[in-house]
Design a protein around this nucleic acid. Sequence first.
DNA 1: CGTTAAATTAATCAATTGTTTAATTAATAT
DNA 2: ATATTAATTAAACAATTGATTAATTTAACG
Lengths: 240, 240
Amino acid sequence: MTANTRKPGRPRQADNAQDAKTALLLAASKLFAARGADAVSVREVAEAAGVSPAMINYYFRNKKGLMRAVLERGLDRVLAVVAEVAGQHDEPVTAAFIDHYIRALNADPSLPQLMVREVLSGNPSYQKVIAERFVRKAIEMMPPRIAEDITAGQLRRDLDPRLTMLSLVGMCVFPFIAAPLLRPVLGYEFNDAFADQLVAHTTQLFNEGAKGTAAKGTAAKGTAAKGSATKGTAAEKDDD
Amino acid sequence: MTANTRKPGRPRQADNAQDAKTALLLAASKLFAARGADAVSVREVAEAAGVSPAMINYYFRNKKGLMRAVLERGLDRVLAVVAEVAGQHDEPVTAAFIDHYIRALNADPSLPQLMVREVLSGNPSYQKVIAERFVRKAIEMMPPRIAEDITAGQLRRDLDPRLTMLSLVGMCVFPFIAAPLLRPVLGYEFNDAFADQLVAHTTQLFNEGAKGTAAKGTAAKGTAAKGSATKGTAAEKDDD
DNA sequence: CGTTAAATTAATCAATTGTTTAATTAATAT
DNA sequence: ATATTAATTAAACAATTGATTAATTTAACG
C-alpha cells in the first residue's frame, strides 16, 4: 500500500522493526499458500514484505530457496501437532488425531493447501522436502501408535495401521482441500462450530462405521448447509 | 522429437491424422495434469501436439481457454462415473461409490490431481467451472441416494448425508492425491492389486468402523509396503 | 474455373519474470 | 579515525512467456 520508497544502504537499527528476512518469510507464506508459488512474483512478495526484490536473493539465494523456507516452516508446524497427538496415551491416537488435526487445520487452512499444491506440483525437490521432513517422520510416529491401540483392543485387530492412517488423514484433510468448492455449494464456513461438527461426525464415522444399526446419539446433528446455496458469488469477467 | 517443420498453409486432408484441435486437447490434458497449467508453456503444448503455438489461440482463443477445455473434459469423465454409481440400485451407493471411484482414479490418477490443483489455484473462474459442472451435479445425485439408503435401513439413521459424502470422497481420493509422497515412503504402486486392497480396506472401514470388536475377516490383508522403503530416488541437483 | 473461406505457420511484439550488478548507507572491527 | 563488512536499494539484464500479425496453402463453393 505505502510506496515505502527507502533509499539504498543499511537501515538504522530500529529495535521494533522485524528484520527483512522474517518479513519476507511471512509475506511469502501467506501469498504462496493462497495462490501457489508459481503465480506469485518475487516483486509481489517483496512489496508485501516492504523490502526490495533483491533481498530475496540476498537472504534465500533463489525464489526456490524462499519457497523451500516457507515449506519447511509450514511442515514443522503441522508436524508439531502430529507429535503432540502421538505423544499422549490418554485416549486412542486416532480419536486424538481427528480432534487436534481438524482443529489445527481449521485454525489455519492454508497449511494443507500449501502442502497439497506442492505435492502435486511434480517438482521432485519439493516433494523430497515434504517426504523427508514430514511424511517420513509422521509415519514413524503414527502407525506404531495405531498398532498399539489395536493390541490394546481399542481398535479392530484386522486393521492395517498404514492404510488406516491414510483413510484417517483423508477424512480430516479433504474438507479443507475442497473448501473453495464446497463453500459456495454447501454453504459452509470455517468457524469453531463447523470444526466441532466435523470432529463429531468424523470421530463417530471412523469409530462406528456407517452401517451400524444402533444410533449411538453422538452424531453431528443438522446439516452443514446453512446459508443460501443458490446465491452464487458475483460472476467475474468471463475472459481475462 | 521430430522437428516436424511444416510450411504454412492449410494441410492436405489426411484422413488418418487427427485434427489439430483434439491433438492440442490431448497433449494439454497430459501436460497440465502432470505439472499444472502454469508450469507448462503454450510452446510446449504445441510441440507435443505437433502443431504451431498459434493454433492454441486459433482454436481456444487463450491459454486459459485451452485450460478450460481440458478441465471440462476431465470433469465430464469423472462425473460419468458418479452418475453410473448413483443410477444403480442393486447395492448401497456408498459401497458402489468406493468400488467404482477408486478403480476409476486408479486407472487415471491424473484426473483428481488436475481438479485439486485448480481448486487450490484460487482462480475463481476455474473454481466456478468445477463447482457448476461437477460439484453441484454430484451433490444433486449422491446425497439423496445416501438418504435413500438411510431410510432403507442400510446406513445408520443419524448420518448426515452431506458430511458422509465428504468423508467418503476424502477416503477415496486422498491416497491418489498423496501418491507422489507415499510411493517412495510406503513403497506402494498403482496397479489392480493395490486398487483391490484399497477398495476392500475402505469399504470395511467405512461400513464397520475402526472400533468394532469382532473382526469380520474381509479386511485388507498385508501391509501396503512392499518395495525397499529406504532406497530413495536418485537425488537430483540441490539447486536449479 | 475463380473466388472466398478455413487452417496453418513463421516471425514478431509487448509484457513479465527471476536474477545480477553497482552504488549507497550504516554497523563493526582495527 | 579508518577500513571492512553487512544490509539495503535502484537499475538494468537476459530469458521466457502469451499473444498477434501477415503470409501461405488447401478446401469449399459458386
